[in-house]
C-alpha cells in the first residue's frame, strides 16, 4: 500500500501474516480431510467451501511473507506458527464443529479488529475481505452447535465432549502475536461472551477447567506443536519434497 514500508514494521507484519496464514493453511487441510466423509452430501459441499475460503486466505497471507509453496511444503514442523487448536485431528462431526466454533469466532473478532485498523495496518485490506468469509464460517458453526447441542441426547453428549476436549487449546488464541495491532484482552472477553452465548442457546455451557496448559499456552505460535501435526505435515509435504525443484 504505502510506497516504502519501514523494514522493522515490515518484519513485524510478516510475523503476523505467518501466524495467521499458518492457522488458515492448517485448518483448511483438516477440513479438506472431511471431503467424502461428511454426514450428508450438503455438508461435504459446505465444509469444502470453508476449506477453500481458508486456503485462499492462507495463500494471500503466506505470499506476503515469501513463496507460498516453499513456506507450505518446505518448512519443518518447528517453523510453523499456527495455534495448536487448528492442527487437532478431526474427531467426529461434533469435534469438528466445536473446533470450528472456537476458531471462527476468534478469527472473526481478530479480522474485525485488523480491518478496523485502517490503511496504516498492513493486513487491513486482507482482513476486510476475510472477515466476510469468516462471518459465514462462524454462522455455519453456530447453526450446527445449536442443532447438535439441542438435538438428541447422543448429539448433545458428543458436542459436549468435543467442546471439552478442545477447551485446553483455546487459551493460546489470546497470546499476543508480534506484529498484530490487536487488543487481546478485549478480543478474549468478546470471544468468551460470543461462544458462551451460542452455547447457552444450544443448551450447553462453557467448559470448565484450564484454557491452557504448560504445553499449549502459546506453544503453537512458538513452533511447538502436538504429535499429530508432524504426521499431517509428512502427508502434506511428501510429494512436493520428493521432487526437489520441480514445477507443478
Amino acid at each position: 500500500m504505502s510506497a516504502a514500508p519501514d523494514p522493522a514494521t515490515a518484519d513485524l507484519a510478516t510475523a503476523g501474516a505467518l501466524a495467521l496464514g499458518d492457522d488458515a493453511l492448517v485448518l483448511s487441510h483438516r477440513l479438506a480431510e472431511w471431503t467424502g466423509h461428511a454426514p450428508v452430501l450438503e455438508e461435504d459441499v459446505a465444509l469444502a467451501n470453508i476449506a477453500l475460503d481458508l486456503l485462499g486466505q492462507a495463500r494471500t497471507l503466506l505470499s506476503l511473507v515469501g513463496d507460498e509453496d516453499e513456506l507450505a511444503f518446505l518448512r519443518e514442523e518447528r517453523a510453523f506458527r499456527n495455534v495448536q487448536l487448528v492442527e487437532q485431528p478431526n474427531g467426529d462431526f461434533a469435534h469438528t464443529i466445536a473446533r470450528q466454533l472456537y476458531f471462527s469466532v476468534y478469527q472473526e473478532l481478530l479480522y474485525g479488529q485488523l480491518a478496523a485498523g485502517g490503511e496504516a495496518a498492513p493486513l487491513a485490506p486482507l482482513a476486510a475481505k476475510a472477515v466476510k468469509e469468516v462471518a459465514y464460517h462462524r454462522d455455519h458453526a453456530e447453526q450446527w452447535t445449536l442443532r447438535l447441542g439441542d438435538g438428541t441426547e447422543t448429539s448433545h453428549a458428543r458436542m459436549r465432549a468435543g467442546l471439552d476436549g478442545l477447551w485446553r487449546y483455546t487459551g493460546e488464541l489470546f497470546r499476543p502475536v508480534e506484529g498484530l495491532a490487536v487488543d487481546w484482552a478485549a478480543l478474549e472477553a468478546a470471544w468468551l461472551e460470543t461462544v458462551g452465548g451460542v452455547l447457552e442457546r444450544a443448551t450447553l455451557t462453557l467448559p470448565e477447567g484450564p484454557r491452557a496448559t504448560g504445553w499449549s499456552a502459546g506453544a503453537g505460535r512458538a513452533g511447538v506443536h502436538t504429535e499429530p501435526f508432524g504426521r499431517m505435515l509428512a502427508e502434506m509435504q511428501h510429494l512436493h519434497r520428493s521432487h526437489p525443484g520441480a514445477s507443478w
Binding site: 459441499v45 459446505a46 467451501n49 454462522d139 455455519h140 447453526q143 442443532r147
Partner: peptide
Amino acid sequence: MALRNARD
C-alpha cells in the same frame, strides 16, 4: 439450514 445449503 436449507437457506445455507442453497447458498453453498
